[in-house]
């Protein structure tokens, strides 16, 4: 099984986990990307939303599971073909939630390009944007090294 281990800087990443956990709570009851289909039968839409929320929560649980005792001891997280798909999706969900909750003042163009002067941001916004970049890095790592596992699963 292909597996990648990544050593993270604990003093930088550990504080971001509070942000991720807070957003994970919000994702228990809210879809990261609201349903855009407006002409669905209401009962059908409710059933969809329930299934999507359940899958979203499983994904977020897998993401939070990365930060276990080993992470706090060694600063290491591991991705493999069992967790790659869930984690890459969970990162997308949390990043979308970060935009809704914290990052709208930065503007969509800045979020797309990542071109933000961090020194001008206050602490909560800087922490949220750092988290946004961190999760993008996790996604890039997984896509770069494990995309064939995801495509074949």
């Amino acid at each position: 099984m292909k597996r990648i281990e990544v050593k993270l800087a604990l003093p930088i990443v550990a504080p971001l986990l509070d942000v991720i956990r807070e957003l994970a709570d919000g994702l228990k009851k809210n879809l990261a990307a609201p349903l855009a289909l407006t002409d669905l039968d209401p009962e059908f839409a409710d059933a969809w939303t329930g299934e999507l929320l359940s899958a979203q929560n499983d994904d977020v649980h897998a993401l939070l599971g990365l930060f276990d005792d080993e992470f706090f001891r060694e600063g290491v997280v591991a991705f493999d073909e069992d967790n790659a798909e869930s984690i890459v999706r969970a990162c997308a969900a949390v990043r979308l939630r970060l935009r809704e909750r914290y990052l709208k003042p930065l503007g969509d163009e800045s979020l797309e390009t990542g071109d933000v002067d961090m020194t001008t941001l206050d602490e909560p916004l800087r922490k949220a944007f750092t988290c946004y970049l961190f999760l993008a890095t996790v996604q890039e790592l997984i896509i770069q090294h494990l995309d064939s596992s995801i495509l074949e699963s």
């Binding site: 990307a33 890459v88 997308a92 990043r95 935009r99 969509d108 979020l111």
Partner: peptide
């Protein structure tokens, strides 16, 4: 599929392939 400012280009490519 509509644009959003958050999802990475590489992620969108992966999703379309998948």
């Amino acid at each position: 599929v509509l644009n959003d400012p958050v999802n990475l280009m590489s992620y969108v490519v992966l999703v379309f392939k998948k």
